[in-house]
Simulated scan of single mutants.
Amino acid sequence: MALQLMKLLVTATTTTEIVPADTRFFHVTNALTAAGSTLTIDAASFFDDAGAEVTSLPTLAANNSYFNVYVNGVLQMEGISTYTPGATGVGSLAIDVPAGGGDIPADTPIVVEVLNYAPSSSTTVTT
């Protein structure tokens, strides 16, 4: 019998599920926010998709989350807003209105969309 290479045959299959949790929060401004100033919205000033008052803004999952801010339906650049999770008095959204730009008028809708992902993977190895 001739020499031959003996190898181990192994197959593996990995299944990954990406489970997004999308939450939206709504606010309508009650006063003008001038360019060069900051609009800070407390958690209790938001309402949810059902129209109920919000008592807390959710925590952002480390490395698996992000938030978007829309002012009057327009997605805003990341660097002008600060999201702080937590309950009333702690949780808030702060929007730094750039100097030299436009004001945020009264009655302007502000929407915050928070996406948290809870991925899970399983691997099956067959030998």
Results as ranks from 00 to 15, higher is better:
residue 1 M to I: 06
residue 4 Q to K: 06
residue 4 Q to A: 08
residue 5 L to W: 04
residue 5 L to E: 07
residue 5 L to S: 05
residue 5 L to Q: 06
residue 7 K to N: 13
residue 8 L to V: 13
residue 8 L to C: 09
residue 8 L to N: 13
residue 8 L to R: 12
residue 9 L to P: 13
residue 9 L to F: 15
residue 9 L to V: 13
residue 11 T to P: 11
residue 12 A to M: 12
residue 13 T to G: 08
residue 14 T to P: 05
residue 15 T to W: 03
residue 17 E to V: 13
residue 18 I to G: 07
residue 18 I to H: 10
residue 19 V to Y: 12
residue 20 P to H: 13
residue 21 A to R: 15
residue 21 A to M: 15
residue 22 D to M: 15
residue 24 R to V: 09
residue 25 F to L: 08
residue 26 F to Y: 15
residue 26 F to K: 04
residue 28 V to S: 04
residue 29 T to R: 00
residue 29 T to M: 02
residue 30 N to P: 06
residue 30 N to M: 04
residue 31 A to H: 00
residue 31 A to M: 03
residue 31 A to Y: 01
residue 31 A to K: 02
residue 33 T to L: 01
residue 37 S to K: 00
residue 37 S to Y: 01
residue 38 T to I: 02
residue 38 T to K: 01
residue 40 T to P: 03
residue 41 I to P: 02
residue 42 D to P: 02
residue 43 A to V: 10
residue 44 A to P: 07
residue 45 S to R: 11
residue 45 S to V: 10
residue 46 F to H: 09
residue 47 F to T: 15
residue 48 D to G: 08
residue 50 A to G: 05
residue 51 G to P: 03
residue 52 A to I: 07
residue 52 A to D: 13
residue 53 E to N: 13
residue 54 V to R: 00
residue 55 T to N: 05
residue 57 L to I: 02
residue 58 P to E: 08
residue 60 L to R: 07
residue 60 L to N: 07
residue 61 A to Y: 10
residue 62 A to F: 13
residue 63 N to V: 12
residue 64 N to Q: 15
residue 64 N to G: 14
residue 65 S to D: 15
residue 65 S to E: 11
residue 66 Y to A: 12
residue 67 F to N: 14
residue 68 N to H: 15
residue 69 V to G: 09
residue 71 V to Q: 11
residue 73 G to E: 12
residue 73 G to C: 08
residue 74 V to E: 10
residue 75 L to T: 11
residue 75 L to W: 04
residue 75 L to I: 12
residue 76 Q to G: 08
residue 76 Q to T: 11
residue 76 Q to W: 08
residue 77 M to C: 15
residue 77 M to F: 13
residue 78 E to M: 09
residue 79 G to Y: 11
residue 79 G to R: 10
residue 79 G to F: 10
residue 81 S to Q: 03
residue 84 T to K: 00
residue 85 P to R: 01
residue 88 T to H: 02
residue 88 T to Q: 02
residue 89 G to W: 03
residue 89 G to F: 04
residue 89 G to A: 01
residue 91 G to N: 02
residue 92 S to E: 07
residue 92 S to K: 06
residue 92 S to M: 07
residue 93 L to I: 04
residue 93 L to P: 01
residue 95 I to E: 00
residue 95 I to W: 04
residue 96 D to Y: 09
residue 96 D to F: 12
residue 97 V to R: 01
residue 98 P to F: 05
residue 98 P to M: 07
residue 100 G to W: 11
residue 100 G to F: 06
residue 103 D to S: 00
residue 105 P to R: 02
residue 106 A to F: 00
residue 107 D to A: 08
residue 107 D to Y: 06
residue 107 D to E: 11
residue 108 T to Y: 03
residue 108 T to C: 02
residue 108 T to W: 01
residue 109 P to H: 03
residue 110 I to K: 01
residue 111 V to K: 13
residue 111 V to H: 04
residue 111 V to M: 11
residue 112 V to T: 08
residue 112 V to G: 04
residue 112 V to H: 05
residue 113 E to C: 09
residue 113 E to W: 15
residue 114 V to M: 06
residue 115 L to C: 14
residue 116 N to W: 05
residue 117 Y to K: 14
residue 117 Y to I: 15
residue 119 P to E: 13
residue 121 S to P: 12
residue 122 S to L: 10
residue 124 T to P: 05
residue 124 T to S: 14
residue 125 V to I: 12
residue 125 V to S: 08
residue 125 V to M: 06
residue 126 T to D: 13
residue 126 T to F: 10
